[in-house]
């Protein structure tokens, strides 16, 4: 299957501290690919490296034929990569509508896109004039996803989208991710809660000390639950 995104032996550091050590990864077109690993393994850094938010010291990141690791950070989302950061990172002083407008402006999308996105998250339609910082945790997560989908991305990066959410919200996020896969969107998903993502994931990569230790099909993981225990410490 064709790769939507390829990380090829990338090194990343925060100052003197190297976090990613030759990390390689392939996100296939239309798949949901989950990154699992302990805290500090480098999962979030991998997503930030893709977005150009931490510099890539060595290796390269390709989106199909385009070497995005050479782009300025603000140019990366214009290539069609939507990002839902850890902790949502909404523009909290801006209204819901303004947050969505920022997403739409990224790739020059318009009213049709907004209507499609609001169709996925109808609760936001009633909150358009509300300051996003005043939304509930679940609504904020919906908005963070909606904002990223306003780019009409073909690659979506989700960093712990179920963090701190109640089960009904987690189920809704799973439904949206599954619906996006049907539309051909490739999703790279970072999670700590294995049970939250396995129902929707196609493949899983285990990240340890900034390296990709193993990538497996989800079916393989179901037949070998010890694998999760080995890399994540639960299971």
């Amino acid at each position: 299957m064709e790769a939507a995104l390829t990380l090829d032996s990338i090194d990343c550091s925060y100052g003197e501290v190297q976090v990613l050590h030759g990390l390689s990864l392939e996100l296939r077109r239309g798949e949901v690919h989950c990154l699992l690993g302990r805290n500090g393994a480098g999962k979030t850094t991998a997503l930030k490296a893709i977005m150009g938010l931490v510099p890539v010291r060595a290796g390269r990141i390709m989106k199909r034929e385009l070497r995005i690791s050479r782009l300025e950070a603000y140019e990366v989302p214009k290539t069609g990569i939507g990002y839902v950061p850890q902790g949502r990172r909404l523009f909290t002083d801006l209204t819901v509508a303004e947050n969505l407008e920022i997403g739409l402006m990224t790739r020059g999308k318009g009213r049709d896109t907004l209507e499609r996105v609001l169709g996925l998250f109808p609760v936001l339609r009633e909150r358009l004039r509300q300051r996003s910082g005043t939304l509930s945790g679940g609504e904020q997560q919906m908005l963070a996803m909606a904002r990223a989908l306003c780019l009409e991305p073909d690659v979506l990066l989700l960093d712990e989208p179920t963090e701190g959410l109640m089960p009904s919200m987690i189920a809704r996020i799973r439904e949206v991710v599954a619906a996006l896969r049907e539309r051909g969107v490739s999703t790279l998903l970072v999670e700590q809660r294995v049970e939250a993502v396995l129902p929707v994931a196609d493949r899983v990569s285990f990240i340890e000390n900034g390296r990709n230790r193993q990538t497996v099909e989800v079916e393989h993981l179901r037949s070998d639950p010890q694998m999760v225990h080995r890399y994540v410490g639960v299971g």
Binding site: L53, Y74, V76, R89, L90, F91, L94, M105
Partner: peptide, 16 residues
């Protein structure tokens, strides 16, 4: 205002 609110996220949404 978006840049004022969160610089890093602003970059992630294409704001120069």
């Amino acid at each position: 205002r978006a840049t004022q609110s969160d610089r890093e996220t602003a970059l992630a949404f294409g704001i120069p």
